[in-house]
Design a protein around this nucleic acid. Structure first.
Lengths: 219, 219
DNA sequence: TACATTACTGACCGGTCAGTCAGTAATGAG
DNA sequence: CTCATTACTGACTGACCGGTCAGTAATGTA
């Protein structure tokens, strides 16, 4: 019953020293609260409390609120991007299939998890926190664009896709996915009726791949 | 030289009484500042100053910051929606042309004007101001969905468009337009290189109409 | 047991801002 | 020219929160 368990949350009164685990616990708590309330509206007191420490402790590990946000981005999204790049490198089939698989992977690992809040936060709060937006764009946005650009290039070269402006098409592919999570966090809580994810995803893939495909080729 | 001109801005020192003109001046000033800084980050002192009055005066005309925002929405977007509904009612040609015209109209009257900031603000700040989001959804969002739904219905009935889930397709049509303005206000200022509007719009219409069109029908 | 190190705490500070209200001055009526 | 009405002002209040730092207590060392 005494002193054997090092987990602070099991005994909120104790002041355990757990240098190793703190950063991950703090970023996890931060992500949760950022999802619930947004970045600017989340108080660092609350982040610290949810992680079972005081605000002072938070400042031992992160120099500022913005640095904490950057750490959340890094821990959350970089691994997913790496997976996507891996898929691209390994793939051998046609571009439609690769594109579909990348989208499904992103949907499963980001859209359907709390990580989906990160792009929402960036878009919402970049005006007041440009440094964070710049970091996101550099670490995540540009890598995602690179990845999609490569797939499109491949499909256009093989004649599978029509010739379209690549940068514009990258954004057009990304838009419905991003909007989906924006909707979830913005309008759904306020009563906007929206269909299920399944239908949305299928209609999106259908419309997109049909739009990209060279005319006259069937299926 | 004296007392003939009732416009406060020409003589900032005078305390003119101009009950009629104040509300419009205040909502105009509010839109400008909301665009520049976002809703939460805009100080009412600044809104009042830009309109040439004091903060106290603002509270004579609007009960709270949120009511001011609602007035901005009403004054800005409701007239544009009315135009769209008018076009729908008048149109006699095919659904593709109608859809294209509606999109071009929205682009010209909203995307390319400061009004484009309003959807951005709603999405960004709805979490902290749900009442405003609800108002927007009710007054603007649902009417826009209704309009697009009617066009799609028309196109699918005539066999011009493929059979797709209508609510999902409405959102998929809206997403690239909304994302475009979100990008402008979020990531562009932070150095995300983006193509020109012309290319984006053309690629969007191309991809969309090609995706919607029944297979085997040309042009 | 004594002492050094350091993870951790939480009261506090300084700055911000939505909303208030007692007072001021422009206007209009008689 | 009064005097009443009311549009307008701006100093003030109370709440909020990012960031600080002097102090506390857990742990390691000998």
């Amino acid at each position: 019953m005494r002193a054997m368990n090092p987990v602070a949350t099991t005994n909120p009164l104790s002041r355990q020293r757990r240098k190793e685990a703190r950063p991950a616990e703090l970023t996890a708590a931060a992500l949760e609260l950022f999802v619930e309330r947004g970045f600017a509206a989340t108080r660092l007191d609350d982040v610290a409390a949810r992680a079972g420490v005081s605000k002072g402790t938070l400042y031992l590990y992160f120099a500022s609120k913005e640095e904490l946000f950057k750490a959340v981005i890094q821990q959350g999204l970089l691994p997913v991007l790496a997976q996507g790049e891996e898929m691209m490198a390994q793939h051998r089939g046609d571009a439609s299939t690769l594109l579909r698989e990348l989208i499904l992977r992103w949907w499963a690992l980001v859209v359907n998890t709390p990580l989906s809040a990160i792009p929402k936060l960036i878009i919402s709060e970049s005006g007041n926190f440009p440094e964070v937006a710049r970091y996101f764009q550099e670490q995540v946005g540009s890598r995602k664009d690179q990845l999609l650009g490569n797939v499109l290039q491949k499909g256009m070269q093989s004649g599978e896709f029509r010739q379209l402006d690549i940068p514009a098409t990258i954004d057009l592919i990304s838009a419905p996915i991003l909007m989906r999570v924006l909707w979830r966090y913005s309008l759904k809580p306020c009563g906007s009726g929206q269909q299920d994810d399944e239908t949305y995803l299928n209609t999106y893939l259908d419309l997109l791949l049909n739009g990209l495909r060279t005319k006259g080729v069937r299926t």
